[in-house]
Design a protein around this nucleic acid. Sequence first.
DNA 1: CTTGACCTTCCAGTGACTGGAAGGCCTAAG
DNA 2: CTTAGGCCTTCCAGTCACTGGAAGGTCAAG
Lengths: 130, 130
Amino acid sequence: MNIGEVAERSGLPAKTIRYYEDIGLIKPLRDANGYRAFRESDLHKLAFLGRARALGFPIEDCRTLLQLYEDDSRTSAEVKQIAKAHLAQIEQKIADLTEMRETLGTLVRACAGDNRPDCPILESLSRDPA
Amino acid sequence: MNIGEVAERSGLPAKTIRYYEDIGLIKPLRDANGYRAFRESDLHKLAFLGRARALGFPIEDCRTLLQLYEDDSRTSAEVKQIAKAHLAQIEQKIADLTEMRETLGTLVRACAGDNRPDCPILESLSRDPA
DNA sequence: CTTGACCTTCCAGTGACTGGAAGGCCTAAG
DNA sequence: CTTAGGCCTTCCAGTCACTGGAAGGTCAAG
């Protein structure tokens, strides 16, 4: 398989696949002409990585998860620990964003949005909170 | 005021303040010795920027908001439009993260987290969704 | 005079790609 | 045989908003 087909079948851009090879996540073979020659196992790994990335795991977590996946002597505790830590990060981000949404939503609702200069949004940004 | 005091009073790291000067958000004066000499107005702008950044506005939005703040002929509609667009981004991010949380939460709860290798998390990442 | 806390600039790195240039390879049509 | 196009290759630079660190200048106190 050439990179175009793998990109199509994995849903990842060719650029991303090359990047994943660069950082050692996959090691496709090479044809005589220098083209990458992907095996089904490479495709499977890329799909795995795509799904892990879609769940927001950072690349280094993805690397570890892939290693665990290929390690028969893994324990589910190792996997769960990574996932739990990542879940906590997600929850923290949601909390931060939710607070931003509330503050900003309040300000947006308070702003007339007309052609006058008075604006609660700018007032809030410029006010001294002390 | 030197940068240390401004950092303290604005809550922004000195590095960040230098960076903001680099990209033209502030233009502090200079003392004879080359040290930056901040006016109260610089401090005020930095505090404004800090609050805008805390609401998640990208730097270019912050630049625009600061310009609008200083422009007496602005309209609140201009400000509101920026804020609304950013709010939509925040809401999109929350939606994405919430979906990740649900999927990942389900997987984490399904995983025994013991010393056996069987793991629903890895199974989910490796399964062909077709 | 020295110490230590400031301040300066400049360079490099972060994370995870993404865009683009310059050039090689392969297939099919004219 | 040539040419066109659509692949593929590598390498470099840019994204975003900082952040760390090195190398060196300045200033106030002891």
